[in-house]
Structure formats: C-alpha cells, structure tokens
C-alpha cells in the first residue's frame, strides 16, 4: 500500500485536484480505481441476477428460446457488436492519450467513443421500434404466432430487461463521456491527474463486456434452427 510507505510529513506539491483528505495524488488515484472496480463488481451481480433467470428459463424451454430469438435482427445486433467493440478501442486509446498527455487526441478519441455509443443507441432504438411494431413487447398487447407464446414472452421479457438495462448503462456512459470531453477541453487532465478518464474507461469497457455476452445469448441462440 502506498500510504504505509509514505510518511506523515509528506513533501508532495499540492495539486489543485488533490482532495484534502488524501495524502497525495497517488493515493487518490488508487482509491478511485479501486472504488470503480468494486462498483463494477456490484454491476456484475446486478446483471448476474438476470443472467441467472436467463439460464434457468433457457434450460427449461430451449426450443422456444431458439424460435423466439429468430425474431431478433441478427444483422443489427452484429453491427452493434462491432460498433461497441470499436468504441472500446477508442476509449482505450483515449485513456492512452490521457496518460501520455496528448490533449488533442484525448478529446478526439473521447468524441469518437461518444459518437459510437450514440450510434449503438440509435440502432437499438430502431430494433426496439421493430419489436414494438411486431407486437413483441411483453404485457397485455403481446402477440406471438409461434407455439408456446407464454414461454416466448419470457424470452422477450428477458431480452428487453437485459438490453434495456444495458442501454441505460450506455446512456449513463454517454453522459459521463460528455463531462469528460468538457473537462478535457478545459484542460483539466494531465499525465499526473487523469483518473476520471481512466475509471470512466473501466466503466465503458464493462458495459462492452455485458454486450459481449448478451449478443450470443439473445441473438445467436436460435441462429442454427431453421425458421
């Protein structure tokens, strides 16, 4: 641990971003990274409940799930996967440029990440409106032609719960990116102090990972079944 090596009479130059209760920026950075990781653990468990429900019902109704997943647009889902992975790359590069102190490229890649995130959300809106049009929104108006509509409804229910929560995280992520862009433009980040960029990057990558699992579980699960 850093602070146990540090002595009480520290001689660190006081950085404007250093909060009063920390000894130095290193300790502050360590705390914020750790905090974000623990937050991500809670996110794992949060989504975990839904993944658990998915596993149980898929093991109960494998056929129904496969058939229901045919109603999802695999092309749009695939494009979104590519978009999101690319946004992870641009986010990683943004963190890189904040580390080396290239402010122009930092802003550029943050903006790119934001645009890709918005693209993802846009495509999601298109997908949702298709589902709405097809009457596949669970609830009283749910319409489904295939066999076992009730069990198919569970699939769509899970689809909307999981992708909806994921999209909510994307929206929050887009908000965070906007703040980062603003403060990067104001020149707040430097190689000494850029932990906001770093921890936001962790969050963004986590949201990407959730999608990495959602894509095969929801879109590819029935791809091989002739529909």
């Amino acid at each position: 641990m850093a602070q146990s090596e540090a002595t009480a009479q520290h001689s660190v130059v006081h950085h404007p971003a250093l909060a009063h209760h920390f000894e130095n920026l290193e300790q502050q950075r360590e705390a914020s990274t750790l905090g974000m990781w623990i937050f991500l653990i809670t996110e794992i468990m949060f989504f975990g409940g839904l993944f658990l429900a998915y596993s149980i019902y898929r093991s109960w109704y494998p056929q129904v799930f496969a058939e229901a997943s045919h109603h999802l647009d695999i092309v749009l889902g695939g494009i979104n996967t590519v978009v999101l992975i690319t946004s992870s790359l641009t986010m990683a590069l943004a963190v890189y440029y904040s580390q080396v102190g290239n402010q122009r490229k930092l802003i550029l890649f943050l903006v790119l990440t934001l645009l890709l995130g918005l693209t993802f959300l846009g495509i999601k809106v298109v997908e949702y409106s298709h589902k709405f049009h097809d009457g596949l929104i669970p609830g009283v108006h749910f319409r489904y032609d295939g066999p076992n509509p009730q069990q198919a409804q569970i699939f769509f229910w899970l689809y909307f719960a999981m992708t909806g929560l994921h999209a909510l995280h994307m929206i929050i992520g887009a908000g965070i990116l906007s703040f980062l862009i603003y403060f990067a433009w104001r020149g707040r980040y430097s190689p000494e102090y850029h932990s906001p960029v770093e921890v936001s990057g962790l969050y963004w990558h986590f949201v990407d990972i959730v999608w990495i699992f959602l894509f095969p579980l929801l879109y590819l699960v029935g791809f091989h079944v002739k529909g």
């Binding site: 641990m1 602070q3 146990s4 209760h21 300790q27 750790l34």
Partner: peptide, 12 residues
C-alpha cells in the same frame, strides 16, 4: 472497502 485499503495511517 476503499477506505480500509487505501487510507490507513502510516504503520497501521
């Protein structure tokens, strides 16, 4: 958790 990991006084 973060406090206990990162904020302990020297020697603690």
């Amino acid at each position: 958790i973060v406090t206990i990991h990162t904020m302990r006084a020297p020697g603690m």
